[in-house]
Amino acid sequence: MPTRQLFLRGLAAFAGLVAATLPAAAERVTVTDIIGRKVEVEAPVSKIILGEGRQIYFVGALDKEEPFKRVVGWRDDLGKADPETFRAYETRYPQIAKLPVFGGMKEGAFDIEQAISLKPDVLFLNIEAKVASDEAKLVEKLAAVGIPVVYVDFREKPFEHTEPSMRLIGKLFGKEQIAEDFIKYRADQIKVVTDRLANTKDLKRPLVMVERAGGFSDDCCMSFGNENFGKMVDFAGGRNLATPLIPGTFGTINAERIVADNPDVVIVTGNNWDAYVPGGAWVGLGYGADMTEARRKLANLMKRPAFTQTAAVKNGNVHGIWHQFYNSPYQFVAIQQIAKWLHPELFRDVDPDATMRVLHERFLPLPYEPGLWVSLGAGK
């Protein structure tokens, strides 16, 4: 073979080898976000701004090895709303202490000029920020400098929006297969509960009162309608007390109604909110939480007039669960735990702790630490 042909063949082989080792070139893709907007984005994205710090819950599930490699800025809420998770990430990835931070859209504290200066490929916003972002004309201002905004949702309608949110983020990250693997794991773990309930004859569904962020304030009582934790109760084989009373996802029930309805089970969502309500009555659940202290505070909450005479308190069917299940793609673990509380014999062999551990081992950058649920009553 002539020398020139050998040279050209070798050059082509070398070029192919280089191409195979390089990351895929960005291309313009169109995604439909959770509010139905068609958005063009250069993908896979390499620079993102998180409109909420807790969006690291989904980023970590897709970028397990380097969860902050794309993040050039984020809202300042994670360290306040979920300090245990923030500390765990900061210990493992100390560089996050230097990330630019933003205030919230709803508070009018989002710095648009700072966002533009970071030159992100995309800004992720939760749908609850839409009204405020519309008022600030955020989408239009960022579009004028070539920065797209994509809305996602794991909070307002998580059972409708979690899968499409994960799929569109997976597409933008170039991690479609990981997104599909996560979605399948989530669906399979929900089916562990729903299939068994569907095959149970004469299922008795206990009446459940879910108190949202109990002890965060002196008021009684925030709860959930037929979404979020309200729907988790339904998936787990219960009847959510607030479903006929709260038309949307979130709302309030007065103490007299709780007394009159006399729930069989009470579940309080809890978290470490010391940054917002120092030393408050809230139940401090989260990674590595102090279970003795959480149980003590949960018991104190049940001394309020709305609960003290309920069947749930009298029978020891009172539980606390990590509040951030309401705002992350991990709700399926909460469904398993609630199912065990509502139907302990039926789900005796189901281990939500093991489910959470597998979630971390397969998808998340952090090691699993218990502390996400607590119960009152003997043997709980």
Rank of each mutant, 00 (worst) to 15 (best):
A144P: 08
P23C: 05
P2W: 05
P263W: 06
E293K: 15
P344N: 11
R75H: 13
Y185R: 11
T310E: 03
V210F: 02
I147C: 01
F154L: 11
F182R: 03
G214R: 02
E156W: 10
F86W: 07
R186L: 10
D349T: 14
R75A: 10
G230P: 09
P120N: 05
K64R: 14
E361P: 04
F332S: 00
F347Y: 07
M232R: 08
V192A: 08
A88E: 08
T85M: 07
R257E: 15
A260N: 09
L50R: 00
Y276M: 15
A12H: 09
R4N: 13
K380C: 01
V350E: 06
P158D: 13
P344I: 00
V358Y: 00
G270I: 03
L298M: 09
A20P: 00
V259Q: 12
D264Q: 10
V268A: 08
F332L: 04
Q324W: 09
N228D: 15
A15D: 07
G103A: 00
Q324F: 04
V150M: 01
A187Y: 05
H360F: 09
P367D: 15
D349H: 14
I147E: 02
F7I: 15
N317I: 07
L142Y: 01
L364K: 13
A289F: 06
F110H: 01
